[in-house]
Design a binder for these strands. Structure first.
Lengths: 189, 189
DNA sequence: GTCTATAGAAAGATAGAC
DNA sequence: GTCTATCTTTCTATAGAC
């Protein structure tokens, strides 16, 4: 429960924002199909009907969440020279709810349903791949950006799908290191 | 329809096998939730009730499919010296229905549902990561295998999620090349 | 502005006819 | 051995009360 006890103040704006936040957190952790409007409403402490009322449909809510994630700024902010190690460590060591890569995680979970994938397909190029490719820069920024993004998503999936990596701390450390080197290599040229 | 016209011969074994094949193809292309028992039955030309009858539940059917995929042999068969380029080209250029990486694709699609992910979590280590790590070999086979598998799945997702890579033929060629080099590097040491 | 109640759709599972 | 018919559950979406 993200809300305090007692009846929620009658404030449409705040309620809408709270629902959007709760939805984002849900879509980061669970697949599109597994997320129910009831759960989201429950997180905020309101009724499921309000979610439909404010966002229309589940699909529109999902699209609003995707929109609200910014243009992958999470990846591109920070020192470029440490990009590889920083991102690798986030993916491998950071618990899901602390990750800075929220946009990527949502994209990844959208695999679950054709509906969600359509939404992501409409947005991924302009909202993510484009800016990232530009940030990576010539030569072949688009190619190198796709490789880096794919690698990051794949390692995130790999963690989720097997419930951790099944490696000891030392191995994880070496894995993060090596992943960081590959990523850095990709964005350096 | 995978069947010829006319009434299906009354042969439990053949029908069961046909259902299993159809299910595998479905689970490779669509998410766990999107695959319906009715669609699978339709592919074979039988009634949905038979699917339940032969495999118990959807979850058990999925587990049987995962079992039937072999221990990632698709990845490890073939010349080790060309592993990187071979796999990279499969992921980037091969249409989904022709891919040799069926086991990995199913693992990837299981992200859609917690149920499917539990099944994969129970099987992934012994049926895939273990043999692959051994094939990669010392030093640190487990680490390098995880990185390679993650990279491969990530690039596969990346293609699906954006409906192709949005790159021209030359760029795809360069991307495949570079991906191949990274993969080869990973398994070479 | 928020909640109760419910309609309507879709899917998995099952009993029984043929 | 296979199919028809149906039960049950679950979820989105909406109408209307407070």
């Amino acid at each position: 429960m993200l809300c305090s006890d007692g009846p929620r103040p009658r404030n449409a704006g705040a309620t809408r924002a709270a629902i959007l936040d709760a939805a984002r957190e849900r879509f980061i952790r669970e697949s599109y199909d597994d997320v129910g409007l009831r759960s989201i409403a429950g997180d905020v402490g309101v009724d499921a009907a309000l979610v439909s009322r404010y966002f229309g449909s589940k699909e529109e809510l999902f699209e609003t969440v995707v929109d609200s994630c910014g243009k992958g700024g999470e990846l591109m902010s920070g020192d470029r020279a440490t990009f590889g190690q920083r991102v690798a460590r986030d993916v491998i060591f950071e618990p899901r709810n602390e990750t800075k890569l929220k946009g990527l995680m949502i994209m990844l979970r959208s695999m679950s349903s054709t509906k969600a994938m359509e939404v992501v397909q409409r947005n991924a190029d302009t909202r993510f791949h484009g800016p990232f490719a530009e940030w990576v820069g010539a030569p072949d920024g688009a190619v190198r950006a796709r490789l880096a993004a794919g690698f990051i998503m794949g390692m995130a999936i790999s963690r989720d799908v097997t419930g951790g990596y099944g490696l000891n701390a030392d191995e994880c450390e070496r894995m993060a290191n090596r992943m960081g080197i590959i990523l850095q290599d990709l964005i350096d040229g």
